[in-house]
Nucleic acid binder design. Sequence first.
DNA 1: GACTATATGGACCGTTGGTCCGTTTCGCAA
DNA 2: TTGCGAAACGGACCAACGGTCCATATAGTC
Lengths: 191, 191
Amino acid sequence: MTQRKERADALRNREAVLAAADDLFARSQSPRSVSMDDVAAAAGVGKGTLFRRFGDRTGLIQALVEARIEPLRQAVETGPAPLGPAGPPRERVLAVLDAVLRFKLDNRHLSLALEEAGSGSPYQAGHYVWWHRTLRDTLLKIPGIPDGDFTAHALLAATRADLVEYLAGQGGMTADDMSARLANYTAKILD
Amino acid sequence: MTQRKERADALRNREAVLAAADDLFARSQSPRSVSMDDVAAAAGVGKGTLFRRFGDRTGLIQALVEARIEPLRQAVETGPAPLGPAGPPRERVLAVLDAVLRFKLDNRHLSLALEEAGSGSPYQAGHYVWWHRTLRDTLLKIPGIPDGDFTAHALLAATRADLVEYLAGQGGMTADDMSARLANYTAKILD
DNA sequence: GACTATATGGACCGTTGGTCCGTTTCGCAA
DNA sequence: TTGCGAAACGGACCAACGGTCCATATAGTC
């Protein structure tokens, strides 16, 4: 039942791949321009190894995002207010949405890659479901929000990676500006 | 300066391709499973012809969507209230969003195909820009909406094809139900 | 040091979007 | 009707990609 210990070379290679992929995505113009061959080459590893470790392209990207998002997840799940579960729900909704937005801004390429990696919609991905549930549950604690489920979807939609990318890129909108606008918008919903 | 008349065979083939593609997308589970080869074969046309006409995959899908959406566009641009420009802006915003939602529900596969066809984000596509501008301009006529531009993006994001697909599919939500929820949500913004 | 489970890597494959160009067809004009 | 140039045709072809396979190499254990 207990997992055999991971071999040292396997561990080393896995980290090399993650580091190389992270770097490649960060430098790339569009996630599409980063091929699995590129990642393998940059990591100094064979393709077989790459796919053995991560299953497929989506798996690799998920692992990458997972690593980056973990601290935020912790902060939301067990951290202090306003992000954590303890504070007043209204503030928490605002804090969570802001955190999501800033995460996507700070990790534009990766978030973009994750969204379009979709074998199917992003809405089935584990991380989305988790964000949605968290947000919905928090919304439901606020009186006068009739439809937490849909509202959570709609609010999260306003932070979609490609929209954020577009506003930051073409629109030349700064992070703080976008954050403020999103907060305003959300506030209307929470009146 | 004046365009040479389109040759009869070209016209015939273009319509055959559009019809075949429309049909293939409608029947397909996922737009990804419809290849350009499939389309060419179903239309009884060579690949060369297909690409000569439509440039690339995105071009074909855009042409398809264009054809379907034209009446709606007309209705919004020059039709009667509530969709047209004459009525009160608040009602128009609601009407337009509802129309977008229902369009995506009625043309799920096509809308999905368009969104993921992206060579780049969907936000650069002509049709998106048009919807956004229309919505923004209408929002700006309503007193107390401070940020029409962002608000228009955010509201449109709530009708993203993959979200709609997800809610209709996995969530088993009916069209009327989704429409009502979206209206409620929008109403909060417009208070 | 031998032995086994595990990891490795790169040749290989099927599919796809897109191109190229020799051939066919259209439409006009004489 | 016929001749002819411009336009359209179609399918062989190509490069790139994600993903598989398996003969070989290596880590860890006794």
